[in-house]
Design a protein around this nucleic acid. Structure first.
Length: 407
DNA sequence: TCTGGGGTCCTAGGACCC
DNA sequence: TCTGGGGTCCTAGGACCC
């Protein structure tokens, strides 16, 4: 029996961070709509994170692109206005969008803070997919005050490609019969999952457009690029069998990292940063009610070389002290005297639900004591705010890193 | 010149076992 | 002394996404 064709929408907020900040400012009585001027949302240059996070159409016309340094952006666009981002507000706008979309289907995958996939296969009734897309587009604009692009297709890949066509405030279809005219004509760099490392290899093979890629021999692509080769080849032909993952998924790993205001050399100072990061990460881990099996420490040197070491634990844990002790061991392995460290990161991986954990025979009094301690500290943090509770010997690093209340 | 932070997935090599 | 594979687990590093 043939399976019913899927009906997929991809919703993408236009210049999300910039649009949302524009709305917030107008709501606060500011007169200028920053969507209408040469503006970007940017990081903080004094914290050495001065990159473009989102740009207005006018800034884009000047050649400003996401990810470049504010310095570079200003060279192209001398009157550029830079505004700070507000993650809390973005989360709220993102939730508003999600709640509006729930009126159409509950099969929604939140692909990122500003993108959703909708599986409309069961919810269309007598209407067409395209009509629904226009209806959603209008409703979002009228009720939420920002615009979206919507891609309309029969799988996720094609819907995502379609939503990336002309912007803003547009609805585009990309059905199978439209692939040659709408997709194969595009530069191969536009294809989802082709990044700046793969591009040179493709150019060498004289592959310039997505159509060129689609003409390649499948086996050759697999031989040259492995799994990634197969995926690229399938995507170029519009093949994608993946499902819309609409159920809430637990994270597979949790990490925090920080670019330091100034490079650090002394191990003791790096350890203090690690402790602060460990507290942040394990706090989030415990909020998910999960345990970690792997601890990973990342360092970035001042010349942008990245290193990481990881270790699998004997017993899964969410305990601050346990994770920190391993983190210190890993730092010990990696630390080279006299190296200038720009970034420190800590993440936990191979997570499992707390109730799946086999209670270890070694779950002794000391461990129970530590868990209790975490619990008490977490409760205080819930009540009085994350930064209300602090460990001795860590004050300095907390001046360096302020916890970002993201969850 | 200056280059974020949070993720997921894949690969390759080494250890170890059968 | 010189020689196999296959499978799993672990680790370091890297590509890609938003």
């Amino acid at each position: 029996m043939e399976k019913k064709q899927k009906q997929i929408l991809h919703i993408d907020v236009n210049n999300a961070f910039l649009s949302w900040t524009a709305m917030d400012r107008l709501a606060q009585g500011e007169k200028v709509d920053i969507r209408e001027i040469e503006a970007v949302i940017g990081g903080d240059e004094s914290k050495r994170s001065g990159i473009v996070l989102a740009k207005s159409m006018k800034a884009k016309k000047r050649g400003v692109y996401t990810g470049e340094t504010l310095y570079q952006a200003r060279l192209k666009c001398p009157n550029l206005q830079v505004f700070k981002g507000d993650y809390k507000s973005y989360k709220k706008h993102s939730n508003d969008l999600y709640n509006l979309l729930l009126q159409y289907t509950d099969k929604i995958e939140r692909f990122s803070i500003d993108e959703c996939f909708l599986d409309m296969t069961e919810y269309l009734g007598n209407d067409t997919l395209l009509n629904k897309a226009y209806e959603i587009s209008k409703k979002v604009k009228n009720e939420l005050g920002f615009t979206v692009n919507i891609g309309v297709a029969h799988n996720k890949l094609l819907a995502k490609m379609a939503s990336d066509f002309t912007k803003p405030d547009r609805v585009h279809t990309l059905f199978e019969e439209e692939i040659p005219t709408k997709m194969w004509t595009l530069p191969v760099s536009e294809l989802f999952m082709i990044g700046k490392k793969t591009l040179p290899a493709l150019y060498k093979m004289h592959i310039k457009t997505i159509g060129d890629l689609a003409k390649q021999d499948k086996q050759e692509m697999i031989k040259k690029f492995g799994k990634h080769g197969l995926m690229m080849w399938e995507y170029s032909k519009g093949i994608d069998k993946s499902e819309v993952h609409y159920l809430e998924e637990k994270p597979k790993g949790i990490g925090n990292s920080v670019t330091l205001p100034m490079d650090l050399v002394e191990k003791e100072k790096i350890e203090k940063v690690l402790l602060t990061l460990t507290e942040q990460v394990t706090y989030r881990l415990r909020k998910y009610n999960m345990y970690a099996n792997v601890v990973n420490v990342q360092l970035r040197t001042k010349d942008f070389k990245d290193f990481s070491h990881q270790k699998k634990l004997m017993n899964a844990t969410s305990n601050t002290k346990d994770v920190y002790n391993v983190a210190k061991e890993l730092l010990d392995e990696m630390y080279k005297k006299g190296t200038f460290i720009r970034l420190v990161g800590l993440r936990v991986d191979n997570l499992i639900d707390k109730d799946e954990v086999q209670l270890s025979l070694f779950n002794n009094d000391e461990e129970k004591k530590q868990e209790k301690l975490d619990e008490v500290v977490d409760k205080l943090k819930e009540k009085y705010g994350y930064n209300s509770v602090t460990r001795a010997g860590k004050l300095h690093s907390e001046e360096i890193i302020k916890f970002k209340d993201s969850d």
